[in-house]
Amino acid sequence: MLKKLLLSTVAIAFVATIQPAEAAESRVLKRIKERGVVNMGHRESSVPFAYIGKDGKPIGYSMDICNMYVDKIRKVLKMPNIKVKHVPVTSQTRIALMANGTIDMECGSTTNNLTRQKQVAYLAVTFITGTKLASKKGSGIKEVEDLNGKAISLSQGTTNEKAIKRIMREKGLKIKIVPVKDHPQGWLALETDRVDAYATDDVLLYGLISKSKNPDQFQVTGRFLSYDPYGIMVPQDDSKYQRLGNVLLADLMRSGEMQKIYDKWFNPGPTGINMPISDTLRVAYEIQALPH
C-alpha cells in the first residue's frame, strides 16, 4: 500500500516536472499553462455566433467551437482544471486585444482577411458569408446603388464598412454614413428610420431580423458586396497553438460533428434563424477535413 502510494507520488512528481512538448514550444500554451486560465474573447451580439444568452453567459456557434478548443488544450496540457475567462470584445477592440495578448482566442464572427493577418492568425474557415443590405420592406431598396442620396448605418471596424466605402468610391455614390459601435446600434438605426439600410454579413442580418420585434417588416437584399470567410482568431506566430485548433476543426469536419454544431445554431437554431447549410460551406468543410 505504502509502496503504491510512494510510486504514484513519484509518478505524479515526474509527470509534473516534464513539460508537455507543446507547451514547451508554444508561447500561448505556455502562458495558459502558467496561469491556468484561457482568456476567451467573444462578441456579445453576433447572433448566433457569439451572443449573450438569457443567463448572461455568452453562447453560440463560435462559442461551441471555442469551448471544444479549450477542452483540447486541457487534454494536451494535461490540466483538466484550466478555467475559461470570458473577455467581451467589440469589432473595434478585438484585433488590438489579440495583438497585445489580452485574449488567447476570439470567438465571434471575424472575417479572415490578409490585412488582418499582419497582426493576427486564424483557424480554419468555419463559416462563409458576405456583405448584404437589410432594409424595410416597401422601401424600394434592392441594391447598394438604390441608396444614392439615402442613409446607411455601418459598424465601425468591420469589413462591411470598408466594402461599402469602396463601392461608394468606385461608383461615386453619395450615401450618408452613420457610424455605429456594434450590430444592435446599427439595427436600431434602421428600426427607428434613422437610416434606410444597415449593411453587414447576411447571416448576421438574418440573426438580427430573427430577434427584432417585427421580423416581417425587414428584408435582406442585393448581391454579395464582399466575400467574408469567418475564422476563430488566434495570436500570430504560434503555429503549435494554431495547429491544435486546426486539428480539432479537421476532426470535427471529417466526423460530421461540425455539421451537427451548425444545425444546432442555424437549422433552425435557438433564435429561429432557419438557415440550412449552404453548398459553399459544405464544400469548405470537406476541403478542410484534412487527414492525420
Binding site: Q92, I95, T115
Partner: peptide
C-alpha cells in the same frame, strides 16, 4: 464618438482599425 460623430478620438480609433497601428 459614441453617437457617430467622427471627431478626433473617433478618427484615431478608425485609423487604428484600418492600419492596426494603434
Amino acid at each position: 464618438l459614441t453617437i457617430g460623430v467622427l471627431e478626433l478620438t473617433a478618427m484615431t480609433r478608425q485609423i487604428d482599425e484600418y492600419s492596426y497601428q494603434t
